[in-house]
């Protein structure tokens, strides 16, 4: 019995459909401040809940634990730790990647959230959970105020 079966029915009679849906997503107050700080100063900020003593990265305007409004900002530096990672060998279309991509959740000292990003300047076989990494930013003039202003995280010396 074949394990792989045909999943493309395009050979049958059908009517093709296409959903054209364009959006813009407003960053909001908390994320706007977060990304402007990355763009202009290359700093990663967290939002602190003074009730729960919980620092959110990425920052939010509200505490998901106690529902309080957050107003205090904390500079978390650019260094963090790999909480978990994976090595992706295919792209979204299922095509094999010539250079596999490493995705990781990076956690920062003093905060319990983190950032999902790629790792660079490291071979997949060298990556470990618990590895210390730091953010590598694009040159300041090229930053646009989004998550890709960070090129990737690289192992810390």
């Amino acid at each position: 019995m074949a394990i792989e079966k045909i999943t493309d029915t395009r050979q049958m009679l059908h009517w093709p459909g296409h959903m054209e849906t364009d959006y813009i997503y407003t960053l909001g107050i908390a994320c706007e401040k977060f990304f402007i700080e990355i763009k202009e100063n290359g700093r990663i900020l967290g939002a602190k809940c003074k009730h729960c003593n919980y620092v959110f990265v990425p920052p939010k305007l509200y505490c998901e634990k106690c529902f309080a409004k957050l107003a205090e900002w904390v500079d978390l530096g650019i260094q963090g730790v790999v909480h978990t990672f994976t090595v992706a060998h295919i792209d979204i279309n299922g095509t094999e990647l010539k250079d596999p991509e490493i995705y990781a959740l990076i956690k920062f000292n003093g905060a319990e959230g983190g950032l999902v990003h790629k790792l660079g300047e490291v071979r997949p076989s060298q990556v470990r959970i618990g590895m210390k990494v730091e953010a590598v930013f694009k040159p300041q003039p090229n930053r646009k105020g989004n998550i890709n202003d960070i090129k990737y995280f690289k192992p810390r010396e």
Binding site: Y23, F85, V116, I147
Partner: peptide, 21 residues
Amino acid sequence: PILNRPLGGHPFYVAGMEMNR
């Protein structure tokens, strides 16, 4: 759309990360 989608990639990388942890 702001924090994760701009990184691109196949979304099942999330499963690989979760399995690893």
